[in-house]
Amino acid sequence: MTFEELNIIPSILKAIKEKGYINPTQIQEEAIPVVLAKKDVLGCAQTGTGKTASYAIPVIQLLQLETAAEKRNGIKALILAPTRELALQISECIDDYAKYTRIKHGVIFGGVKQQPQNEMLRRGVDILVATPGRLLDMMNQGCIKLNQIRYLVLDEADRMLDMGFIHDIKKILSKLPVNRQTLLFSATMPGAILSLTKSILKKPVNINVTPQYSPVETIEQLVYFVEKKDKNSLLISILQKAENQSVLVFSRTKHNANKIVRKLGIAGIASEALHGNKSQTSRQNALSNFKSGKTRVIVATDIASRGIDINELPMVINYDLPDVAETYIHRVGRTGRAGNTGTAVTFCSQDERKLVENIQKLMGKKMNKKMFPAKQKTV
């Protein structure tokens, strides 16, 4: 199937062709017609399968066709995202898809000065991408009114609940028009999400294109059993063999991310840390350097990594294992995107073996086991 067969209008087709899009992914193929039919959607698809385009393209099209028939000021579509990085990523995608339309959009998030965001809103936007905290704050100040919202999107809803945004989301929902189209997309569907959907979705079309707790099949998954003291040596060895490849390394804590960057620097491997203690400017610069290839290695915590969307990222390394098995799915989903192959490498020390067991149980499959140093016997 092609995007033309999905009845995408010429102005958007031109933009997505410039992006190199030819054939829609499965979530796009199934979701776009449903959104264009103005039905609510409960979409579950793995990270890296193209969820952003599956809702952004049809919402832009619906608004473009509506603005051609009427002129009404005010925010008409609201997209909620859990982190500033993801909000920026979504905004960049909308900028690409809507470049040949009349649709205006903006993005707001915390950690930066509010004044430029106020000025952007005064100029007027049709689509607003926002993190819940900053949105609620600006609503309370009277800077934002949501009484004309026709389309609501909750992206990575599971992550928003994990981060404790449920109360903010409920407050925001109470200010939205009852008559609206609501789209909820998530990589996993825990019970809390399903409970939320009952109160905000009206007869939704369920779209579940892949097993919830399984990374895409194009990702090779390896687990190295390694002593904690040897993790730095293993990381340096892998990065040296990876030569010029971009690599995303996950650390459980901000402190350890900084420590890993220092150790890599001593070994002559340039890298940057990405975590919540970094300023917004620093985080955006680090992401920009990584996406452009200027920085080959990024060491990130889970929250900071949510906006990293690089179609050809070949490798993800779990230096530290996450406490929650579902988080592993999000991490490794940074690679193997858009039909490309990828490698997910996990370091497992003695005290992390139970975490690996939990992940494998969740996925219903085993990772390929390796030892470091290689001469050690497999346990």
Rank of each mutant, 00 (worst) to 15 (best):
F3T: 05
E5K: 15
E5R: 12
I12Y: 04
K14I: 03
E18W: 02
K19F: 01
G20K: 01
N23I: 15
P24S: 10
I27G: 09
I27T: 02
E30T: 01
A31Y: 04
I32R: 02
K39S: 15
D40K: 09
L42Q: 08
G43A: 15
K51Q: 06
K51P: 03
T52L: 10
Q61Y: 05
L63Q: 00
L65H: 08
E70Y: 14
E70I: 13
G74I: 12
A77C: 02
L78N: 08
I79Q: 05
T83S: 13
R84P: 06
E85R: 11
E85Y: 10
A87G: 07
L88I: 14
Q89G: 12
C93F: 13
D96V: 03
T101F: 02
R102S: 15
H105S: 13
Q115N: 11
Q117W: 07
E119I: 13
M120Y: 03
R122W: 08
R122G: 05
D126S: 08
T131E: 05
R134D: 00
M138T: 09
C143H: 12
L146T: 07
Q148G: 00
Q148S: 07
I149Y: 07
L152G: 08
M160D: 04
M163I: 05
M163Y: 09
G164R: 01
I166A: 05
K171P: 02
L173Y: 15
L173A: 10
K175G: 00
L176W: 04
V178W: 06
N179C: 08
N179E: 14
T182V: 06
L183I: 05
S186A: 09
T188V: 03
A192N: 15
I193L: 13
S195F: 07
T197P: 00
K198P: 03
P204K: 07
N206F: 06
N206D: 07
P211Q: 10
T218Q: 02
L222E: 06
Y224R: 04
F225A: 02
V226H: 01
V226Y: 06
V226A: 03
E227G: 07
K228I: 01
K228T: 14
K229T: 14
L235M: 03
L235I: 08
I236M: 03
Q240D: 05
Q240V: 04
V249L: 07
N256S: 08
A257C: 03
R262A: 13
K263W: 05
G265E: 13
S271V: 09
E272D: 06
A273V: 00
H275Y: 10
N277S: 05
Q280M: 12
R283D: 12
Q284A: 13
Q284T: 15
A286Q: 04
G293N: 09
G293H: 13
V299Y: 03
T301H: 05
I303H: 05
I308Y: 02
D309R: 13
D309L: 11
N311F: 00
L313E: 02
P314Q: 08
N318L: 04
Y319D: 09
D320R: 10
P322C: 02
D323P: 12
A325L: 04
I329W: 06
H330T: 09
V332R: 05
G333R: 11
R334T: 11
T335D: 05
G336Y: 04
G342L: 01
A344N: 01
C348G: 11
S349C: 14
E352I: 06
K354Y: 13
K354T: 11
L355H: 09
E357F: 12
E357I: 12
M363I: 15
M363F: 04
K365D: 07
K366R: 13
K370Y: 08
P373Y: 14
T378Q: 15
